[in-house]
């Protein structure tokens, strides 16, 4: 059974094809990063226009990669949310056009959940319960996949997503876009303890995170240095900033794992590519005897294969949507994703 997954929730037009839930057949991403670069962030209307331009060519490339034709596809999965409304709508409309024309089932997928389920394409069936940190330019969430395969959100950033904080600081430091890889690179030669930046909400008893105060503190420190005529060591600033972000995420995630009595952690989302975050999560998990699952980078960043995998799971559980499937920019993790019965 071949499932084609369509992902357009943010700035990647992505199509994936998955066979029998666990086998990756194609994973093609048309990135719009160059289009949004000049703005230092994703521009919703620019993203929606680009999704429309890129949709058919990306579908074609995925079919070629899979060595398949649209007539071979047995079901269409599509991200219904969370994400940018106008961007999501292009993917969902295209998915409906395909499903109608080929008379195959349509299933709407939750983007956050799909990030976690992407791991099954590399490690095989996940063995819940497990916790996951899903961290990207659009989201920073700590979720739990329960033993029955359903998902719960434990916490999320209350302001900036981690990737967004990276973008904003990179922009302030005059670095390129997207900011995450730039900060990661610059931090390599820097001292992560050169500056002390705040870790917010560490002891508030929730699993929520706040990153906007950290961003403000970095900017304030740079302005202070400028005022006293001191040249900041940018590598040290980047490393100290990155260390603070990584700290907050690792501490909150590991606390959730301990409180829930879990033994496995999935790290997913585009920011999972950050070398310091991966190393820190690995060290923390090793120390506690936990299993850490980190999908390879093409399955961590936004992609269509994760949507196909998640859709295949939903279909296997007897769940499907009708053609009135709506996009929901705030799609909650628990509601639309639980298979009926």
């Amino acid at each position: 059974m071949l499932v084609l997954g369509v992902e357009t929730s943010c700035d990647e037009t992505a199509i994936g094809i998955v066979e029998d839930r666990f086998a990756l057949r194609a994973n093609v991403v048309a990135s719009q990063a160059q289009l949004h670069g000049p703005y230092g962030g994703v521009v919703p209307e620019v993203a929606a226009r680009a999704h429309l331009d890129l949709m058919l060519p990306t579908i074609d490339r995925a079919l070629v990669e899979a060595g398949a034709h649209l007539s071979d596809i047995d079901a269409i999965a599509v991200t219904a949310g969370p994400g940018l409304a106008g961007a999501l709508l292009v993917g969902v409309s295209a998915a409906k056009g395909l499903a109608l024309a080929r008379d195959v089932p349509l299933v709407g997928v939750n983007h956050l959940r799909a990030h976690v389920e992407a791991a099954q394409l590399e490690v095989g069936a996940l063995d819940p319960p497990l916790a996951a940190l899903v961290v990207s330019g659009g989201h920073t969430s700590i979720v739990v996949m329960d033993a029955d395969g359903s998902f719960r959100q434990l916490g999320a950033t209350i302001d900036d997503a981690a990737g967004e904080a990276f973008d904003k600081i990179a922009r302030f430091l005059g670095l390129g876009y997207p900011g995450g890889p730039e900060i990661d690179r610059l931090s390599q030669g820097g001292n992560p303890r050169a500056y002390h930046f705040p870790r917010a909400m560490l002891h508030d008893g929730t699993y929520d995170l706040s990153l906007s105060g950290l961003k403000t503190a970095v900017i304030r420190e740079l302005r202070r240095l400028e005022a006293v005529g001191e040249e900041p060591v940018l590598a040290d600033v980047a490393a100290s900033f990155q260390e603070a972000i990584v700290d907050v995420q690792a501490i909150k995630t590991l606390r959730a794992v301990a409180d829930e009595g879990l033994e496995q952690v999935v790290l997913a989302g585009g920011v999972a590519a950050n070398r310091r975050l991966r190393a820190r999560m690995q060290a923390d998990c090793d120390e506690r005897g936990l299993r850490l699952i980190v999908p390879s980078i093409p399955l961590c960043t936004d992609n269509g294969a994760m949507v196909a995998a998640s859709g295949a799971n939903l279909l296997a559980a007897g769940h499907l949507d009708d053609l009135s499937l709506a996009v929901d920019p705030n799609l909650p993790l628990a509601v639309a994703t639980e298979p009926p019965g």
Partner: peptide, 15 residues
Amino acid sequence: ARIGWETRGRMHGGR
């Protein structure tokens, strides 16, 4: 060309 950080804020997970 507004970046719409506020729109993106909606994606963070429903808080």
